[in-house]
C-alpha cells in the first residue's frame, strides 16, 4: 500500500492495542497472589475470548477480507479440513498440520490457474 502523507489511523489502532494489552498484563501483576484464577468468572472470560477468536478464525476462512477472497470457498474449506485431519492423524503435530493446509491451498490455487478446471 502506498502512503499518502501520513495516515495516522494505523498508529492509533496500534497505540490502542498496546494500551489495552499492557493494561491487562499490568493489572495481572498488581493482582497476582491476591485473587484466585480458577473461579467461574475467569472460565466465563475464557469462553468469551475463545468464542470471539473462533468466530474470527471461521470468518477468515469462510469470508476472508483481502486477496484470499478471490479463492473459491471450497478450496479454503478443503485446505482447512485437511489441515485438521493431518493434525489429528499425526498426534497433533502442529507443523505438519499447518503445512498441509498451506500446501493444499497453494496446490489448489495453482491447479485452477494452470488447468482452469474450476
Amino acid at each position: 500500500m502506498t502512503e499518502t502523507l501520513t495516515n495516522w489511523g494505523p498508529y492509533i489502532a496500534l497505540a490502542i492495542t498496546f494500551a489495552v494489552t499492557y493494561g491487562w498484563r499490568a493489572l495481572g501483576v498488581a493482582l497476582s497472589g491476591r485473587i484466585r484464577t480458577d473461579s467461574p468468572i475467569f472460565e466465563w472470560v475464557t469462553c468469551v475470548a475463545y468464542a470471539l477468536l473462533a468466530g474470527l478464525i471461521a470468518r477468515m476462512i469462510v469470508l476472508p477480507l483481502g486477496s484470499l477472497a478471490e479463492t473459491p470457498m471450497i478450496d479454503r474449506l478443503s485446505a482447512a479440513l485437511l489441515a485438521l485431519a493431518v493434525f489429528l492423524l499425526t498426534r497433533k503435530n502442529l507443523f505438519l498440520g499447518v503445512f498441509s493446509g498451506f500446501a493444499c491451498l497453494v496446490l489448489l490455487t495453482w491447479g485452477r490457474a494452470g488447468f482452469a478446471f474450476g
Partner: peptide
C-alpha cells in the same frame, strides 16, 4: 507467486484453528 502468498495469509486462521484443536 500469488498462490504461495495466498497460502501465507492462510497460515493465520489455520495456525490458530489447530492451536485451539490441540
Amino acid at each position: 507467486p500469488l498462490a504461495i502468498s495466498l497460502g501465507l495469509v492462510f497460515l493465520n486462521p489455520i495456525y490458530f484453528m489447530l492451536v485451539f484443536a490441540s
